[in-house]
Simulated assay, not measured.
Amino acid sequence: MKLKLLLGTLMFTAFTAHAQVATINENFESFTTGTSAAWPQNGWSKAAPPGAGPFVYAEGTTDKVIQFYSLMAPNTAAYLITPQIIAPDGTKSLTFTYAMSAGSGGTGTLQVGLISTANTAGTAAFTSISQVYELNSTTEQTVTITVPASANQYIAFKFIGAAQHTALYVDDVIYNASSSLAVSDTKKSEDQIKFALTADHTALQFVSKTEPRKIQIYSATGTKVAEGKLKNQRFDVQTLQTGVYFVIIEGNEGKITKSKFIKK
């Protein structure tokens, strides 16, 4: 994603209470973009020190994301905070996609944790629930982690840029019941089978040395919605509704690869 240098100032807004939610499925398409947009948005909040960064804001047009941007404040944490969730009991998982923005001025880190309230004061209680993800590539990574039982009712994405003008984005956040699809805090490896949606969003186009043995597709709630084999290196998804889907790919040697895609 192309990095846009910030020319405006960040507008700070008071936190507005929202009802607790049991699940989250957010692609940020309804968010107002730009650093001057009023927050909270759709129950989501952000926390960052005042001054010349770091900033947290919605960015994009047809595929919006939440952008983190260090600007002139390297090594300073900024947070994206979910709506208040029902106190987690350890039965749900969190899935999200992240990457460095193209044009980023440096590398950074991302970590997920639980906090007590949706503001800067609440971040003092940040308790990590994930590894520290090193942000040094514009290739999107998708991870799934288990959210442990806790009295803290907000999930926070903590970003720290190692240099000025470091930027990354987060997208497609899903908090729901754990299922057999969950992969514990694991990045996509470089040797996984690669695929992409065709331009008309009717099929998954695969690129691999050997054709996978079987494809299974699950909805965001863990329901199997499709299963079968490839035909001419394609798997038909034209009957699927708009949404986020998980894919289990079984290779010829029995190796299982897990990924996801967004049907539009």
Rank of each mutant, 00 (worst) to 15 (best):
Y133G: 00
I160W: 00
V143G: 03
K187R: 15
Q192Y: 08
S178E: 14
A182E: 11
Q241C: 06
N176W: 07
V207F: 03
T257G: 06
K255R: 12
N232S: 13
A156G: 04
D185W: 12
Y169L: 11
A163S: 15
S150Y: 08
I174H: 06
Q241R: 13
G222I: 08
S208H: 04
F157D: 01
E140S: 10
L230T: 07
T223S: 14
V237P: 03
V247W: 06
P212T: 06
P148T: 10
G251T: 13
A199C: 07
V170D: 08
Q164T: 10
S137N: 08
S219A: 12
D171P: 02
V207S: 14
N252M: 10
H201M: 13
L135R: 00
L168V: 12
D200L: 11
Q216R: 07
I256V: 11
E211C: 04
A163Q: 15
H165Q: 13
T242R: 13
V237D: 03
L135A: 00
F159C: 02
S137Q: 03
T221E: 14
S189R: 12
K209V: 10
I215R: 05
P148C: 09
I217V: 12
Y175D: 09
N136H: 04
L181V: 01
D191P: 01
L135G: 00
A156L: 02
G228E: 14
A199M: 12
A226R: 04
F235K: 02
A226M: 04
L181I: 09
Q153F: 00
I155E: 06
I155Y: 10
F246V: 04
L204M: 14
A162S: 11
N232R: 07
I145S: 13
K158A: 02
E227R: 03
Y175R: 05
T223F: 10
Y154Q: 08
G161T: 04
G228Q: 13
P212M: 03
G254Y: 01
K214P: 03
A220Q: 08
H201Y: 15
E211T: 15
V244K: 11
I217T: 05
L197A: 12
N232E: 15
V244N: 12
S150N: 11
T138G: 00
